[in-house]
Simulated assay, not measured.
Amino acid sequence: MSTSKGLEGVIVAETDITALSDDQLSYVGYSIDELAEKAEFEEVIYLLWYKKLPNEIELESFKQALFDEMFLPEALIEQLRGLNLQRAHPMSILRTAVSMLGLYDDDANQEVSEDVNEREALRLQAKIAPLIAAFSRLREGKEPIAAKRDVSYAENFLHMLKGKPVDALEVEAFNKALVLHADHELNASTFTARVCVATLSDLYSGVTAAISALKGPLHGGANEQVINMLMEIKEVEQAIPYVQDKINQKEKIMGMGHRVYKTGDPRAKHLKEMSKQLTKEKGQEKWYLISEKIEDYVKKEKGLPANVDFYSASVYHMLGIDHDLFTPIFAMSRTSGWIAHILEQYKNNRLIRPRAEYVGPENQVYQPIKERS
C-alpha cells in the first residue's frame, strides 16, 4: 500500500465545478480572468451552484432571493451579544454562529433532498454576510445595520459593516475579491466539507466543518498574517531588510508560493491592480509599494510568486476592514464554493473512508497492570 503525505497529487473525486493547473483557474469552464473583470459575485454563486451563468431574469430573481434572506433572527443577535466578542477570534465566533444558524432553519432537521439543500444554501449564503458585519459592529458597541435593497452583495456587505457610503472603486475591488476567492477545488476546507456531508449530515454541518478547517493559519489565515507583516515593516525602505532577515532566519514569507500554482497564482494580478488603485486613491501608496518590493524580492531570491492572499491584505486594509476579519471574509466568499461542492457530493454520494498504513509495533502481549513497568 503506497501513501502520499497530505494526499498531495492524489485524485479523490471528479468535479464539474472548478479546474486549476500550474497557472490557470476556471469556474465551470469560465476563465477566472474573465469572471474577475466582468462578473458580479451573485453571477458566480449562481454559476457554481447551477453550472450556468444566469440570464437577466434569473439573476434578478436570484438577487432578490438572497436579499429576502439577508437578515438574522433576533434571537441569534441576542446570542451573539452574550459571546465573548472582545477576546475570541472572529473565526471562532463565525464557526459557532454558523452552527447556531442551523438551529433557526427547520430545513436543517429534514432529510437531505434537492429542495431542502437549495433552500438551506440560499439562506446560509445570504446570512453569512450580515452575520460577519453584525459581529464586527456588536463588538464595537454598535447595532447591526439592515441590508439595502437593489445593491450588490459586495456593496451590501460593506454597507452593513461600516454604515456609510462606499465608492465605485471600493465596490469593484471587494466584488473582485469575492469572485476570486469563491472556489478553489479540493483545498483543505472544501475537502473537509465533502467528508462531512458524505455521511449525509446537513449543509450547516458541512459549512461549519469547512470554517473550522479554514481557521488554520496554513489555509485561510495567510492574508491576516500578510497585513501583520506590512504593519511591522511600516516604510518602503524597510521592506527588503525585513524580508532578508526573515529568509536568513528560515522563516516563511506569508502570501508567497502555492501548493498547486508553480508558475504563478492567476488570481493575484487582479488584486494587485486593485491594491495599486485603492492605495493611490486613498493617498496610502506605501502599502502597495511595500508589497510590490516584497513580491519582487521573494520571487527573485526564492522563486516564489505572490498568491491570492498577498494583495488581498492591502486591498482589505484600504477598505477599512479590521484585520482579524480578513479570514471570515474569505469564508463568506468561499461559502459559495463549499456549498457547490456539498451539493455535488450529495448528488453522487459515497461515504468517504480512506485507509491508513499501520506502522506501529506488532504482536504485543497484554500484561496485568501490576506487572507493567
Rank of each mutant, 00 (worst) to 15 (best):
F330V: 02
P144W: 12
K276P: 02
D265V: 03
I128C: 11
T263S: 08
G29H: 04
A121T: 09
P361G: 04
V44K: 01
A268G: 03
G163Y: 09
I57T: 15
G337M: 11
A133N: 05
A154M: 11
W49S: 00
I342L: 08
A121W: 03
R334E: 14
Q79E: 15
A306I: 02
M1S: 14
I290K: 11
E120I: 09
Y104C: 14
M274S: 13
L59E: 04
G257V: 11
S99P: 03
R353Q: 12
R350Q: 11
P354E: 09
D115E: 13
G337N: 08
L343M: 15
A356C: 13
L230E: 06
K272T: 03
A36N: 00
P354D: 10
M231K: 15
K347L: 07
V179Y: 00
I11Y: 07
L203C: 07
G264R: 04
I240L: 12
T279R: 01
M70E: 15
L103G: 11
D245Q: 13
P217D: 09
F157E: 03
Q345W: 01
L278F: 09
Q24E: 12
F310Q: 02
S336P: 05
Q86E: 13
R87M: 03
E56S: 15
C196I: 13
I128Q: 02
S201F: 03
R139W: 08
P90V: 09
L180N: 02
F191W: 07
D167V: 01
A313L: 07
I321F: 11
L230T: 00
G264L: 02
E281P: 00
N117V: 10
E34K: 14
K246W: 07
S314D: 12
G220M: 04
A198S: 15
E155V: 12
V365M: 05
S99A: 14
A108W: 00
G9Q: 06
L72Q: 12
I233T: 08
V179T: 04
A331Q: 04
A193K: 01
G255N: 00
E58W: 01
C196D: 11
E251H: 08
T96N: 11
Q79D: 15
A134D: 11
L304I: 11
L186E: 12
D23E: 08
A213R: 06
N84V: 09
D167W: 06
L169I: 12
I321V: 15
R355W: 07
V195A: 03
D22I: 08
P165S: 12
D106Y: 15
I329M: 13
N156W: 10
Q284W: 02
I132M: 06
L94D: 05
D105M: 05
F191A: 10
V10R: 12
S312V: 07
R95P: 06
L85S: 08
I11D: 05
V12F: 15
V315L: 11
Q24A: 10
M160Q: 13
A154T: 07
R259E: 10
I253G: 00
G320D: 13
K276T: 05
M160A: 06
E143H: 08
Y242C: 13
L35A: 00
Q277M: 06
V12R: 06
A36D: 00
L103I: 10
F174E: 05
A75C: 05
K234D: 14
I45A: 08
P144S: 14
S336R: 01
G320A: 14
Q79R: 15
K164M: 09
V179D: 01
S212C: 10
F71S: 14
M254K: 01
F191H: 05
S2N: 13
G264S: 04
A133D: 06
V98E: 00
E301T: 15
V166L: 02
